[in-house]
């Protein structure tokens, strides 16, 4: 049940990181509304399947359009919306399982195309909605409901993957910092190309990582999260790569290439070359 809808029957668990991500996205969309004067309906939120994707039903305040599709396919759905109507602001919200496991095949092609959408990925290192199975970001050896003797394969580093695939804007955020996270999402939405804001969004039910992310001085646990220093130049690909070799999880903008045209810009550029013919003219080619 949500405030706006008595029939809606899904709730996030107390402490779930996704609350903070929702807050951040609301901030970004409202900021955008105030800055551009475009109505909230100019935003379209494409949701993956998972606890994370349910965000699309839980947004408060003025409502954007939403599309809650099928598991793993939020990127190509977003592509359809964006290429149909490039003037819309298209945002993807999905989990680590949705985006990096079943949907992984779609990241590379969208990176090559430089599709102008912003993907906000809620990484909790686990499949939340299906109750705690291992995900691509679950570490080697970890015991989950689907890895009773420990996970057999190594975890991936999503940020390195995005950089390798050529995603043109890569940022890393934390769900407990909605304002800084909102700033990253806003930069991602404003970036003219494919942007991914990868968010550490802990699952209190199956993989509570708050302590390891934030650290605990009393227990001698060092925080995994660290802020990217101001000197880092996101336009420098080698520097971005180096940043990701330093261990832990850097927070901030890791990489941005603003020089590439996005897919819709490429299409617009080639229109000039292609002369559109009417159906009548096209039929003429077959007339005898």
């Amino acid at each position: 049940m949500s405030k706006k809808n008595a029939e809606y029957d899904f709730k996030w668990c107390p402490g779930c990181g996704d609350f903070g991500v929702r807050r951040a996205l609301e901030f970004s969309m409202v900021d955008r509304l105030e800055e551009t004067g475009l109505p909230m309906e100019n935003n379209v939120v494409i949701a993956g399947i998972g606890c994370s994707g349910n965000l699309v039903h839980l947004l408060e305040g003025p409502q954007p359009y939403g599309f809650h599709g099928i598991h793993g396919r939020s990127l190509p759905i977003a592509m359809g919306v964006k290429m149909a109507r490039p003037e819309l602001n298209v945002v993807v919200v999905a989990g680590d399982g949705d985006f990096l496991s079943i949907g992984a095949e779609h990241i590379g092609p969208q990176a090559s195309r430089n599709l102008n959408v912003c993907a906000v990925i809620m990484d909790n290192g686990v499949y939340g909605l299906t109750k705690g199975q291992s995900s691509p970001t679950t570490a080697l050896g970890v015991i989950t409901s689907s890895t009773p003797f420990g996970k057999l394969e190594s975890e991936i580093n999503p940020l390195e993957l995005y950089l390798t695939l050529g995603v043109s804007f890569i940022a890393s955020g934390f769900s407990s910092q909605p304002r800084p996270l909102a700033s990253l999402i806003t930069q991602g939405m404003e970036h003219p190309g494919f942007s991914i804001v990868h968010v550490q969004s802990p699952c209190t039910a199956y993989n509570d990582t708050y302590e390891s992310l934030k650290g605990n001085a009393k227990k001698g646990i060092q925080p995994a999260l660290w802020s990217i220093p101001d000197e880092h130049d996101p336009g420098d690909r080698a520097a971005a790569h180096e940043l990701l070799q330093q261990g832990g999880i850097p927070l901030g903008v890791i990489y941005q290439d603003s020089d590439r045209l996005s897919l819709d810009q490429q299409v617009e550029k080639t229109w000039a070359k292609a002369g559109a013919k009417s159906v009548q003219e096209l039929m003429g080619a077959f007339e005898f």
Partner: peptide, 10 residues
């Protein structure tokens, strides 16, 4: 899936 996105967008 792209088709569905486009159909949804009008």
């Amino acid at each position: 899936t792209a088709l569905l996105g486009a159909g949804f967008a009008g």
